[in-house]
Amino acid sequence: MTERTRVEVELTVNGRSHRVRVEPRRTLADALRDDCGLTGTHLGCEHGVCGACTILADGEPVRSCLMFAVQCEGMDLRTVEDLADGDRLHPIQQAFWENHGLQCGFCTPGFLMLSAGYLAQNPDPDEEELRAVLSSNLCRCTGYQNILKAVRQAAEVMRG
């Protein structure tokens, strides 16, 4: 194979700069996982439906499989690895743990980042809004029951 053109991109992930050389076609999700080594962001469909790859870009929850790494210079990217404060779990992580909001754990980072992005802007959602937002992502194990419960609890905790 001939060497494909790669370009240098500086990604700011979880407050840290990563200089990576990628082909323009490398998705943000693949760049985070394979070039930055942050494999907490998962790929479940790579066409924008399942939401396992959800991260925060400038504070907004986005599907990282639907963006290219070359687009993301200068963005503040946040992944699941950034959520806990050292050994202290983020209230959303804590609530997922206490409420059995995960089974296989594959969809979990996407749901955590979706919830984190949403609750940061909407700290007191009603049930209907919360259900609508959490229907953004797919989970195959939990039937969503305990995910909903966990995010509801986390919202309360975060409101203090």
Binding site: R33, L38, T39, G40, T41, H42, L43, T79, V80, E81, L83, A84, L89, Q93, F96, W97, E98, H100, L102, G105, F106, T108, P109, L112
Partner: peptide, 19 residues
């Protein structure tokens, strides 16, 4: 009892084949 399996899966420390 909350599961012993959970903390790595919650923090992005899970290790699946593609990782």
């Amino acid at each position: 009892l909350p599961r012993f399996e959970d903390p790595p899966l919650l923090t992005g420390e899970g290790r699946f084949v593609a990782d």
